[in-house]
Write a protein that binds this DNA or RNA. Structure first.
Lengths: 153, 153
DNA sequence: TATTGTTATACTCTATAACTATA
DNA sequence: TATAGTTATAGAGTATAACAATA
């Protein structure tokens, strides 16, 4: 267990991290991160179609929010809605090839910025930070995708 | 220089970090993170009064955004506006004792959540993540406070 | 009755543009 | 003329509540 002081220090650094994300989003060409990107990214990382509720759970968002983003993404042809085979209330969401292209473009654009800002980072530093961020997310219940197949029906 | 693959991995983990912040904000008692918290936090970390423009620069926000948050914070008595001694256009912002109390409460509330979610973290892990997040922020131009005294007048 | 998802409404955060006051 | 800051307006993200359809 980390000391209270270490936690406080971590909290201080963490507090500004949203600003870093905002800076990244601003540094990227306009249109690279379209509205609803987070939902699209989550879908792109899934190996199988997901229900809306599962997406909301994974992103720790209200389902109404996910639903609204999905409407936008479907409208653009980046996500496909299909009826759930065994549950008439549910829908299955899958990313389309066009959606994958959007994710690719977004990733490339962000990578370019990262490469520019992290020139003096070693491979080791980058990997260590990836690992620690992953653990932090896991601690907050943001499970990695693909999902460990809790088949809901 | 980290490899493209390491950067891509880091980007993947980083992408979901905003969700973690959202989860933290939701896990905390209502009112712990009042609107404009980020501006208040920045002011609380400064050892001297700051101009609005300097705050915007530090947070990488448009000044109009900072101005709007400041109006709210001043209204609550958490921030004090004073005229700049040598520049009639500028204002100097300082946190009040009441503002510090708000920051303390917010910090304590977040710390409680962190302590709960990071039970299995070692001191070393927490410190390493703090350090790496700090470097990441620096890479994106988010300079730590207190400011290295570029006296503007 | 309970659950899945959608829609209506409202609140927060942010940026752009127009404006005022001062330099 | 240029700069510091404010205000008006608009767009994006989110949550709550009411709702429809299905289980």
């Amino acid at each position: 267990m980390a000391t209270r002081e270490a936690c406080r220090q971590l909290l201080t650094e963490f507090e500004g991290i949203v600003g870093v994300y905002r800076s990244l989003a601003k540094a990227v060409p306009v249109g690279s991160l379209p509205p609803g990107s987070s939902v699209l990214f989550a879908l792109s990382r899934s190996t199988e179609p997901l229900r809306a509720g599962r997406l909301a759970e994974l992103l720790d968002l209200d389902m109404s929010v996910v639903s609204r983003h999905l409407a936008h993404l479907v409208e653009h042809g980046w996500v496909e809605r299909r009826p759930h085979p065994s549950d008439g209330r549910a829908v299955l969401l899958g990313i389309t090839p066009q959606g994958r292209a959007v994710v690719e473009r977004a990733t490339d654009a962000c990578l370019a910025v990262f490469a520019e800002r992290l020139v003096d980072w070693s491979d080791d530093d980058a990997e260590r930070l990836s690992e620690l961020l992953g653990r932090l997310k896991a601690g907050f219940g943001h499970r990695p995708l693909p999902v460990p197949a809790v088949v809901s029906h």
